[in-house]
Nucleic acid binder design. Sequence first.
DNA 1: TGTACATCAGTGAACGCGCGTTCACTGATGTAC
DNA 2: TGTACATCAGTGAACGCGCGTTCACTGATGTAC
Lengths: 208, 208
Amino acid sequence: MVEKQRRRPGETREKLMNAALTLVGKERHFASLGIREVTRQAGVVPTSFYRHFRNMDDLGLQLVDELGLVLRRMMREARANVLQADKLIEESVAIFISHAQANRSFFMFMAQGLAGESRAVQEGIRSEMRFFASELANDLRRLRLVDHLTDQDLDMTADLVVRSVAFSLTDLLGVSPDDDYQIGQIRKRTTRFLQLIFVGAANWKSPG
Amino acid sequence: MVEKQRRRPGETREKLMNAALTLVGKERHFASLGIREVTRQAGVVPTSFYRHFRNMDDLGLQLVDELGLVLRRMMREARANVLQADKLIEESVAIFISHAQANRSFFMFMAQGLAGESRAVQEGIRSEMRFFASELANDLRRLRLVDHLTDQDLDMTADLVVRSVAFSLTDLLGVSPDDDYQIGQIRKRTTRFLQLIFVGAANWKSPG
DNA sequence: TGTACATCAGTGAACGCGCGTTCACTGATGTAC
DNA sequence: TGTACATCAGTGAACGCGCGTTCACTGATGTAC
């Protein structure tokens, strides 16, 4: 006899979201996932899907919300651990890379969603990135490392940093998680990108 | 009676590739396109597909090749038209944006493919971007605007420029092609990103 | 505390449909001699 | 130049299958009084 029901509330919902993420982590594109496929991966009957989501887009939107949590967690860790200003960039990049590795599927979903099929998911991910960039701008303001920049120029700098890191993400997701050499290369290159941007910011004069 | 056969050689192949691009241009993700869907859009019987492609991935790879041509055309135009060094960035960005608008579907395909399902397509697009970046580095070397950089640092700068522009592409593709105000904003922001990067490059000292 | 009822979340059967792919056929075009 | 044959590219019919979605059902949990 099959053990059924008496599940923790929200358990199936969670299973479905994890199933979608797992498939995305296996090089599948979110846009090509089907409801039956996801429920199969989750070990759940297809009809269960509709108890939690209206369709795959809906599931995608809820994944975006969770992605936001992952990003906030990463930010918190970066704030706690990046203590020496002179190592700020190296350490932040290292933390980013370790989080990207630990949540590979989530970040894959994010990279896919930026040019994805659902406009709403796309907007959601963009909005998470904007939030991230604005928090970074606040941190930079607080650290007073680039004191001569106007608020607007600081925002621009933070935005460019976030974009560069996001692009490195797609590099990172393209190599095997075990390939330490390649990952090291990506880490170094990302670090240099950010250094270049900060040299630019340090010497920036607002056009007027 | 239906007029049939006696087609220009390669005509159907072209129709199929255009059909896929058209669908991608309509917010569809390439990974979610089906063979029947593409042939329907092309006005061709499903079996015709197999005369030209082994599967959708194959079609994707051939689109990457065409994408390369589009990028080379853009590069050529930029070289021909960007004459004054002081307007170099503005003018290049303007040319990029006008090409992105004129080949919206192609660039959409490119943005999608970077995090797409097919590893081969992904690699193809990356390789086109690397080529583009290396050509840009050559141009910068020739113009002698950043003479103090090592070859490696110049490559890095060009790479960062290309990435930033590619990311702006996803901004651009997210707004309506008629929304001149938004497009203007994206143009300005991209220009400032590149200016920031070049200020960084101008003041860069290779670590050693 | 107990009872009646509503809501919630999971199930299996069933539907009609569009999918990818195979097949044998056809006429146009290219090639050998 | 003409003829015989191979190759190419397009066609329509057919296949089995997995898809999204609906439905009526069931038992567990929450709520009202």
